[in-house]
Protein backbone atom coordinates (compact mmCIF):
# COMPACT_ATOMS: atom_id res chain seq x y z
CA UNK A 1 0.00 0.00 0.00
CA UNK A 2 1.13 3.51 0.22
CA UNK A 3 3.25 3.06 3.20
CA UNK A 4 5.51 5.38 1.42
CA UNK A 5 5.59 6.24 -2.18
CA UNK A 6 7.26 8.34 -4.74
CA UNK A 7 4.84 7.59 -7.42
CA UNK A 8 1.52 9.11 -8.21
CA UNK A 9 -1.34 6.91 -9.29
CA UNK A 10 -0.93 3.24 -9.59
CA UNK A 11 -1.04 3.11 -13.34
CA UNK A 12 2.45 4.40 -13.72
CA UNK A 13 3.89 2.81 -16.77
CA UNK A 14 6.77 0.47 -17.06
CA UNK A 15 8.62 2.93 -19.22
CA UNK A 16 9.51 4.78 -16.08
CA UNK A 17 11.61 1.91 -14.87
CA UNK A 18 15.23 2.73 -14.91
CA UNK A 19 14.71 6.34 -14.00
CA UNK A 20 16.78 7.40 -11.03
CA UNK A 21 15.16 5.93 -7.99
CA UNK A 22 14.09 8.55 -5.59
CA UNK A 23 15.85 11.29 -7.41
CA UNK A 24 17.06 13.00 -4.28
CA UNK A 25 19.27 10.07 -3.41
CA UNK A 26 22.77 10.62 -4.72
CA UNK A 27 24.16 7.22 -3.78
CA UNK A 28 26.36 5.64 -6.42
CA UNK A 29 24.40 2.47 -7.12
CA UNK A 30 20.93 1.82 -5.87
CA UNK A 31 19.02 -1.30 -6.65
CA UNK A 32 15.41 -0.40 -6.26
CA UNK A 33 12.29 -1.99 -7.44
CA UNK A 34 9.78 0.71 -8.17
CA UNK A 35 9.46 3.43 -10.71
CA UNK A 36 9.92 6.67 -8.98
CA UNK A 37 8.16 9.49 -10.71
CA UNK A 38 9.07 12.59 -8.89
CA UNK A 39 5.92 14.31 -7.89
CA UNK A 40 6.73 15.04 -4.33
CA UNK A 41 3.88 17.46 -3.89
CA UNK A 42 1.50 14.54 -4.24
CA UNK A 43 2.94 12.40 -1.50
CA UNK A 44 1.23 14.18 1.39
CA UNK A 45 -2.04 14.06 -0.51
CA UNK A 46 -1.84 10.31 -1.04
CA UNK A 47 -0.68 9.72 2.49
CA UNK A 48 -3.51 11.72 3.98
CA UNK A 49 -5.98 9.69 1.94
CA UNK A 50 -4.42 6.50 3.25
CA UNK A 51 -4.66 7.72 6.82
CA UNK A 52 -8.31 8.57 6.16
CA UNK A 53 -8.83 5.11 4.66
CA UNK A 54 -7.41 3.51 7.79
CA UNK A 55 -9.69 5.47 10.11
CA UNK A 56 -12.70 3.12 9.88
CA UNK A 57 -10.53 0.16 10.88
CA UNK A 58 -9.04 2.17 13.75
CA UNK A 59 -12.48 3.28 14.90
CA UNK A 60 -13.84 -0.27 14.87
CA UNK A 61 -10.85 -1.55 16.81
CA UNK A 62 -11.36 1.14 19.44
CA UNK A 63 -15.05 0.26 19.59
CA UNK A 64 -14.28 -3.41 20.21
CA UNK A 65 -11.15 -3.18 22.33
CA UNK A 66 -11.46 0.22 24.00
CA UNK A 67 -8.74 2.47 25.25
CA UNK A 68 -6.03 -0.17 24.81
CA UNK A 69 -6.50 -0.06 21.06
CA UNK A 70 -6.40 3.73 21.01
CA UNK A 71 -3.23 3.77 23.11
CA UNK A 72 -1.53 1.17 20.92
CA UNK A 73 -2.23 3.16 17.77
CA UNK A 74 -1.17 6.45 19.33
CA UNK A 75 2.03 5.02 20.79
CA UNK A 76 3.03 3.27 17.56
CA UNK A 77 2.48 6.39 15.47
CA UNK A 78 4.39 8.56 17.94
CA UNK A 79 7.26 6.09 18.08
CA UNK A 80 7.46 5.84 14.29
CA UNK A 81 7.57 9.62 13.90
CA UNK A 82 10.15 10.00 16.64
CA UNK A 83 12.38 7.30 15.14
CA UNK A 84 12.14 8.82 11.67
CA UNK A 85 13.04 12.25 13.02
CA UNK A 86 15.93 10.93 15.10
CA UNK A 87 17.45 8.99 12.22
CA UNK A 88 17.11 11.82 9.74
CA UNK A 89 18.64 14.27 12.19
CA UNK A 90 21.49 11.84 12.84
CA UNK A 91 22.15 11.35 9.13
CA UNK A 92 21.70 15.04 8.39
CA UNK A 93 18.92 14.33 5.92
CA UNK A 94 15.91 16.58 5.43
CA UNK A 95 12.90 15.64 7.47
CA UNK A 96 10.22 13.67 5.65
CA UNK A 97 7.77 13.45 8.51
CA UNK A 98 5.36 15.73 6.69
CA UNK A 99 4.90 13.14 3.95
CA UNK A 100 2.98 11.01 6.43
CA UNK A 101 4.62 7.70 5.60
CA UNK A 102 5.80 7.19 9.17
CA UNK A 103 2.28 7.82 10.45
CA UNK A 104 0.96 5.10 8.17
CA UNK A 105 3.65 2.65 9.20
CA UNK A 106 2.70 3.33 12.80
CA UNK A 107 -1.01 2.79 12.23
CA UNK A 108 -0.47 -0.35 10.18
CA UNK A 109 1.89 -1.82 12.74
CA UNK A 110 -0.59 -1.14 15.54
CA UNK A 111 -3.37 -2.75 13.51
CA UNK A 112 -1.37 -5.98 13.29
CA UNK A 113 -0.89 -6.23 17.07
CA UNK A 114 -3.11 -7.95 19.61
CA UNK A 115 -5.05 -5.51 21.82
CA UNK A 116 -3.28 -6.74 24.93
CA UNK A 117 0.18 -6.12 23.48
CA UNK A 118 2.43 -4.09 25.83
CA UNK A 119 2.96 -0.49 24.74
CA UNK A 120 6.73 -0.74 25.16
CA UNK A 121 6.69 -3.66 22.76
CA UNK A 122 4.83 -1.52 20.24
CA UNK A 123 7.55 1.11 20.60
CA UNK A 124 10.19 -1.52 19.91
CA UNK A 125 8.33 -2.71 16.82
CA UNK A 126 7.99 0.85 15.56
CA UNK A 127 11.67 1.60 16.02
CA UNK A 128 12.56 -1.60 14.22
CA UNK A 129 10.10 -0.92 11.40
CA UNK A 130 11.43 2.56 10.71
CA UNK A 131 15.13 2.05 11.46
CA UNK A 132 15.74 -1.45 10.08
CA UNK A 133 12.72 -1.69 7.80
CA UNK A 134 13.19 1.62 6.06
CA UNK A 135 16.24 3.75 6.79
CA UNK A 136 18.84 0.98 6.69
CA UNK A 137 17.93 0.59 3.02
CA UNK A 138 18.17 4.31 2.40
CA UNK A 139 14.78 5.58 3.42
CA UNK A 140 11.46 6.03 1.73
CA UNK A 141 11.31 4.35 -1.66
CA UNK A 142 14.41 2.21 -1.24
CA UNK A 143 13.13 -0.33 1.20
CA UNK A 144 12.75 -3.95 0.12
CA UNK A 145 10.18 -4.95 2.72
CA UNK A 146 7.03 -3.36 3.96
CA UNK A 147 8.31 -1.61 7.12
CA UNK A 148 5.19 -2.21 9.20
CA UNK A 149 5.23 -5.93 8.42
CA UNK A 150 8.93 -6.14 9.13
CA UNK A 151 8.31 -4.54 12.53
CA UNK A 152 5.53 -7.02 13.11
CA UNK A 153 7.76 -9.93 12.09
CA UNK A 154 10.42 -8.79 14.53
CA UNK A 155 7.88 -8.58 17.34
CA UNK A 156 6.60 -12.02 16.43
CA UNK A 157 10.09 -13.40 16.84
CA UNK A 158 10.92 -11.31 19.90
CA UNK A 159 7.71 -11.86 21.87
CA UNK A 160 6.23 -15.10 20.50
CA UNK A 161 3.94 -15.52 23.49
CA UNK A 162 2.69 -11.95 23.89
CA UNK A 163 1.90 -11.60 20.21
CA UNK A 164 -0.30 -14.67 20.26
CA UNK A 165 -2.16 -13.74 23.42
CA UNK A 166 -5.60 -12.58 22.41
CA UNK A 167 -8.57 -11.18 24.26
CA UNK A 168 -12.27 -11.30 23.52
CA UNK A 169 -13.86 -8.15 22.16
CA UNK A 170 -15.25 -5.78 24.78
CA UNK A 171 -12.63 -6.90 27.25
CA UNK A 172 -11.78 -3.79 29.19
CA UNK A 173 -9.02 -3.17 31.64
CA UNK A 174 -5.41 -4.14 31.58
CA UNK A 175 -5.25 -7.48 33.31
CA UNK A 176 -5.12 -9.83 30.38
CA UNK A 177 -3.65 -12.87 32.04
CA UNK A 178 -7.04 -14.03 33.16
CA UNK A 179 -8.78 -13.97 29.83
CA UNK A 180 -7.11 -15.73 26.94
CA UNK A 181 -9.05 -16.13 23.73
CA UNK A 182 -8.33 -17.80 20.42
CA UNK A 183 -8.56 -16.19 16.98
CA UNK A 184 -10.87 -17.67 14.35
CA UNK A 185 -7.84 -18.98 12.47
CA UNK A 186 -6.42 -20.62 15.57
CA UNK A 187 -9.82 -22.14 16.33
CA UNK A 188 -9.93 -23.49 12.80
CA UNK A 189 -6.41 -24.88 12.89
CA UNK A 190 -6.15 -26.31 16.38
CA UNK A 191 -9.73 -27.04 17.39
CA UNK A 192 -11.44 -27.53 14.03
CA UNK A 193 -14.04 -24.88 14.89
CA UNK A 194 -15.49 -22.44 12.39
CA UNK A 195 -16.49 -18.88 13.13
CA UNK A 196 -19.68 -17.53 11.52
CA UNK A 197 -19.01 -15.34 8.48
CA UNK A 198 -21.06 -12.47 9.82
CA UNK A 199 -18.88 -12.20 12.91
CA UNK A 200 -15.81 -12.15 10.70
CA UNK A 201 -17.35 -9.48 8.53
CA UNK A 202 -18.24 -7.11 11.34
CA UNK A 203 -15.46 -7.95 13.71
CA UNK A 204 -17.03 -9.39 16.83
CA UNK A 205 -14.09 -11.78 17.19
CA UNK A 206 -10.74 -11.85 18.92
CA UNK A 207 -7.67 -11.00 16.92
CA UNK A 208 -5.29 -8.15 16.30
CA UNK A 209 -6.72 -4.64 16.10
CA UNK A 210 -7.02 -4.53 12.34
CA UNK A 211 -8.00 -8.11 11.59
CA UNK A 212 -11.31 -8.15 13.38
CA UNK A 213 -13.65 -6.24 11.10
CA UNK A 214 -13.39 -7.02 7.41
CA UNK A 215 -16.06 -4.47 6.56
CA UNK A 216 -14.15 -1.51 8.02
CA UNK A 217 -11.11 -2.36 5.95
CA UNK A 218 -13.07 -2.91 2.76
CA UNK A 219 -14.61 0.56 3.18
CA UNK A 220 -11.14 2.08 3.51
CA UNK A 221 -9.81 0.07 0.59
CA UNK A 222 -12.68 1.02 -1.69
CA UNK A 223 -12.19 4.67 -0.79
CA UNK A 224 -8.56 4.47 -1.85
CA UNK A 225 -9.56 2.66 -5.03
CA UNK A 226 -12.07 5.43 -5.71
CA UNK A 227 -9.33 8.01 -5.26
CA UNK A 228 -7.19 6.01 -7.67
CA UNK A 229 -4.37 5.31 -5.25
CA UNK A 230 -4.72 1.55 -5.21
CA UNK A 231 -3.94 -0.77 -8.04
CA UNK A 232 -6.94 -3.09 -8.18
CA UNK A 233 -4.85 -5.98 -9.51
CA UNK A 234 -3.04 -6.42 -6.23
CA UNK A 235 -5.88 -6.79 -3.69
CA UNK A 236 -7.99 -8.68 -6.23
CA UNK A 237 -5.15 -11.05 -7.11
CA UNK A 238 -4.30 -11.63 -3.47
CA UNK A 239 -7.81 -12.24 -2.17
CA UNK A 240 -8.79 -14.14 -5.31
CA UNK A 241 -5.77 -16.37 -5.01
CA UNK A 242 -6.53 -17.08 -1.36
CA UNK A 243 -10.12 -17.91 -2.20
CA UNK A 244 -9.07 -20.06 -5.15
CA UNK A 245 -6.40 -22.12 -3.42
CA UNK A 246 -8.39 -22.25 -0.19
CA UNK A 247 -11.38 -23.36 -2.27
CA UNK A 248 -9.50 -26.24 -3.83
CA UNK A 249 -8.82 -27.74 -0.42
CA UNK A 250 -12.34 -26.97 0.71
CA UNK A 251 -13.79 -28.86 -2.23
CA UNK A 252 -11.49 -31.77 -1.51
CA UNK A 253 -12.54 -32.01 2.13
CA UNK A 254 -15.13 -29.49 3.34
CA UNK A 255 -15.21 -30.92 6.84
CA UNK A 256 -11.52 -30.37 7.38
CA UNK A 257 -10.68 -27.22 5.46
CA UNK A 258 -12.43 -23.84 5.72
CA UNK A 259 -14.39 -22.40 2.82
CA UNK A 260 -12.99 -19.67 0.55
CA UNK A 261 -15.03 -16.91 2.14
CA UNK A 262 -13.59 -17.77 5.55
CA UNK A 263 -10.08 -17.43 4.11
CA UNK A 264 -10.58 -13.92 2.79
CA UNK A 265 -12.55 -12.66 5.80
CA UNK A 266 -10.51 -14.13 8.66
CA UNK A 267 -7.22 -12.98 10.03
CA UNK A 268 -5.09 -10.37 8.34
CA UNK A 269 -6.18 -11.17 4.78
CA UNK A 270 -8.21 -7.98 4.28
CA UNK A 271 -5.71 -5.66 5.92
CA UNK A 272 -2.88 -7.29 4.02
CA UNK A 273 -4.67 -7.25 0.69
CA UNK A 274 -5.77 -3.61 0.78
CA UNK A 275 -2.98 -1.91 2.66
CA UNK A 276 0.17 -4.05 2.48
CA UNK A 277 0.19 -5.99 -0.77
CA UNK A 278 -0.57 -2.68 -2.47
CA UNK A 279 2.48 -0.93 -1.04
CA UNK A 280 3.84 0.86 -4.12
CA UNK A 281 7.44 0.62 -3.06
CA UNK A 282 7.50 -3.08 -2.29
CA UNK A 283 5.27 -4.46 -5.04
CA UNK A 284 6.18 -5.07 -8.70
CA UNK A 285 5.81 -2.35 -11.31
CA UNK A 286 4.67 -4.32 -14.31
CA UNK A 287 1.04 -5.45 -14.64
CA UNK A 288 2.07 -9.05 -15.23
CA UNK A 289 4.43 -8.87 -12.31
CA UNK A 290 1.68 -7.53 -10.08
CA UNK A 291 -0.51 -10.52 -10.88
CA UNK A 292 2.35 -12.93 -10.19
CA UNK A 293 3.15 -11.15 -6.94
CA UNK A 294 -0.42 -11.08 -5.64
CA UNK A 295 -1.35 -14.62 -6.66
CA UNK A 296 1.85 -16.18 -5.35
CA UNK A 297 1.50 -14.35 -2.03
CA UNK A 298 -2.11 -15.51 -1.69
CA UNK A 299 -1.13 -19.11 -2.36
CA UNK A 300 1.64 -19.00 0.22
CA UNK A 301 -0.70 -17.48 2.80
CA UNK A 302 -3.15 -20.35 2.30
CA UNK A 303 -0.40 -22.96 2.50
CA UNK A 304 0.90 -21.50 5.76
CA UNK A 305 -2.62 -21.32 7.19
CA UNK A 306 -3.52 -24.89 6.33
CA UNK A 307 -0.23 -26.72 6.64
CA UNK A 308 2.24 -24.46 8.47
CA UNK A 309 3.02 -24.31 12.14
CA UNK A 310 1.33 -20.93 12.54
CA UNK A 311 -2.38 -20.25 12.22
CA UNK A 312 -1.86 -17.08 10.13
CA UNK A 313 0.33 -16.68 7.06
CA UNK A 314 -0.51 -13.27 5.63
CA UNK A 315 2.51 -11.49 7.09
CA UNK A 316 5.11 -14.00 5.95
CA UNK A 317 3.47 -14.44 2.55
CA UNK A 318 3.80 -10.74 1.80
CA UNK A 319 7.32 -10.41 3.23
CA UNK A 320 8.44 -13.44 1.26
CA UNK A 321 7.14 -12.04 -1.99
CA UNK A 322 8.56 -8.59 -1.17
CA UNK A 323 12.00 -10.13 -1.30
CA UNK A 324 11.60 -11.37 -4.88
CA UNK A 325 10.03 -8.19 -6.30
CA UNK A 326 13.22 -7.13 -8.12
CA UNK A 327 13.33 -10.56 -9.80
CA UNK A 328 9.67 -10.40 -10.77
CA UNK A 329 10.24 -6.98 -12.26
CA UNK A 330 13.10 -8.33 -14.31
CA UNK A 331 11.24 -11.36 -15.61
CA UNK A 332 8.21 -9.38 -16.62
CA UNK A 333 9.99 -6.47 -18.23
CA UNK A 334 8.21 -5.62 -21.49
CA UNK A 335 10.23 -5.96 -24.68
CA UNK A 336 9.41 -2.52 -25.99
CA UNK A 337 9.18 0.78 -24.27
CA UNK A 338 5.83 1.41 -22.81
CA UNK A 339 3.30 -1.06 -21.72
CA UNK A 340 2.13 -3.83 -23.99
CA UNK A 341 -1.16 -4.38 -22.36
CA UNK A 342 -2.84 -3.41 -19.19
Amino acid sequence: MMDKTRQVGEESKAGARGSTPGGSGDGPLIVSSSPHLLTADNIPKIMHSVVAALLPACAVSIYFFGIRALLLIAVSVAACIATERAIQRFLGKPSTIADGSAIITGILLALTLPPSFPLLGAVLGSVFAIAIGKHIFGGLGYNIFNPALLGRAFLQAAYPVLITTWVEPFTRGFDVDAIAAATPLALMKFEGQMTPHLDLLFGNISGSLGETSAVAIIIGGLYLRYKGYINWKLPLGYLGSMAFFGGIFWLMNPSRYPDPLFHVLAGGAMLGAWFMVTDMVTSPTTPKGQWIFAIAAGAIAVIIRLFGGLPEGVMYSILLLNSVVPLINRWTRPKVFGEVSS
Partner: peptide, 15 residues
Protein backbone atom coordinates in the same frame (compact mmCIF):
# COMPACT_ATOMS: atom_id res chain seq x y z
CA UNK B 1 11.82 -6.69 31.11
CA UNK B 2 10.39 -9.25 28.73
CA UNK B 3 13.41 -10.73 26.91
CA UNK B 4 13.42 -10.55 23.13
CA UNK B 5 13.47 -14.22 22.30
CA UNK B 6 14.59 -13.40 18.77
CA UNK B 7 18.01 -12.33 20.02
CA UNK B 8 18.98 -15.85 21.09
CA UNK B 9 17.61 -17.30 17.86
CA UNK B 10 19.63 -17.29 14.62
CA UNK B 11 17.87 -14.14 13.38
CA UNK B 12 19.19 -12.26 16.41
CA UNK B 13 22.71 -13.38 15.54
CA UNK B 14 22.48 -11.93 12.05
CA UNK B 15 20.94 -8.69 13.31
Amino acid sequence: YTPWVVMILPAGAFL
